[in-house]
Design a protein around this nucleic acid. Sequence first.
DNA 1: ATTTATTTTTAGACAAAACTAAAAATTTGT
DNA 2: ACAAATTTTTAGTTTTGTCTAAAAATAAAT
Lengths: 218, 218
Amino acid sequence: MTRSEENYIKTIFHLGGSDSVPIATNAIAEQMETKPSSVTDMAKKLADKGLVHYKKYQGVSLTEVGIKTALSIIRKHRLWEVFLVKKLDFTWDEVHEVAEQLEHIKSEKLIDKIDELLDFPKYDPHGDPIPSKDGKFMIRDKELLSDLEVNAIGVCVGVKDTSAPFLKFLDKNGIALGKTIQVLDKEDFDQSLHIKIDTSELHISHQIASNLYVKKND
Amino acid sequence: MTRSEENYIKTIFHLGGSDSVPIATNAIAEQMETKPSSVTDMAKKLADKGLVHYKKYQGVSLTEVGIKTALSIIRKHRLWEVFLVKKLDFTWDEVHEVAEQLEHIKSEKLIDKIDELLDFPKYDPHGDPIPSKDGKFMIRDKELLSDLEVNAIGVCVGVKDTSAPFLKFLDKNGIALGKTIQVLDKEDFDQSLHIKIDTSELHISHQIASNLYVKKND
DNA sequence: ATTTATTTTTAGACAAAACTAAAAATTTGT
DNA sequence: ACAAATTTTTAGTTTTGTCTAAAAATAAAT
């Protein structure tokens, strides 16, 4: 597997191509910041290798082997992210870029040892689940903060947007995984939220709230 | 810098091209298991980028910038080797292959943090010095075990050959960095050595002895 | 249901990094 | 010093992954 092939497989997985729902050429091209014609070329190659299903004009979806491959890459990516945060004091907005490189290192032993060193973590620094060696992972039940009703309380368990600007905003406002958040009030006008986090109160836009996952206390 | 460019720079450095002694196209090709014509192509490209001095038919040597680049790659390679051994329990015969990949990861912060995590090691698992961030490193005075006179005592400080078979042989015979070795006798016929290591005695060929570095006790 | 718009694919080209085969320069040997 | 051997370079291909421009298929719209 070349680096490029791995990146296509990963992108198709993230776009939902694991459920035999075919993903459009254009969608893949946009996500990867490349041209649709390049995607077509790669789709053919990956189909030849048995990693994707591909019918002309019908989009691309992952085969069983393709899904296994995608999970293996995602496992590596997320384990490296945990390593960077836990062992090297990276912040959660710094890890993605470096993990994009580290995920392509070819050594079964290396990633298993990293897993062990970290004591087999189940979630990465953004709250996303880490597939196990055999490709299984726990999908934690969670909902968007923006979907909570007024007065509901939840624990922050993940972020949808993992971009550095968003994560830095969260840091600046004391929002981190594990924090308890209560919805104090919702503005009808713009869906913005008044929330309580620890002891302090905060007013956040719908944009922010709809990119934060919480696990509701019931 | 592409991966391939980095590999050429590193090879030229290892062949001695840092002392403005030009290295022959053929020598580089042989070392890299590629063809001389490929080396010529790359020599031109690296010269254009100001990393090497190159005159047709005269071989290749590193510029100041080229040397700095080489030291940076070697620093990464050796730090990763230490990491693999100290933190992930790799053996010294397993590290090279993986470090060859890890050395190309592009992140200043990553390698500095790894350096810090390891407490700024000065030597890699084979006894080779690790260049500092500013490209300086300690060349330890050492000599080949095969050059010691009978009865001399030295501490094992490095290996010349770093191939897995050689390193495994050493492991099997209890030879490791830091061990004290005494030359008990030399066979005139084949230059083989009788040595004492810890409490046990051992008979090793000249081949072995000429790939082991020791620091003499005087 | 045709026309229009969009999406996708083909065809041809390009850059990087490798290769082969042949030509040119250098080195070696007598 | 000159022929022979070796080394190095050139020229032309190949592969991988990308691109542009044009053609073909599908989807949308009146």
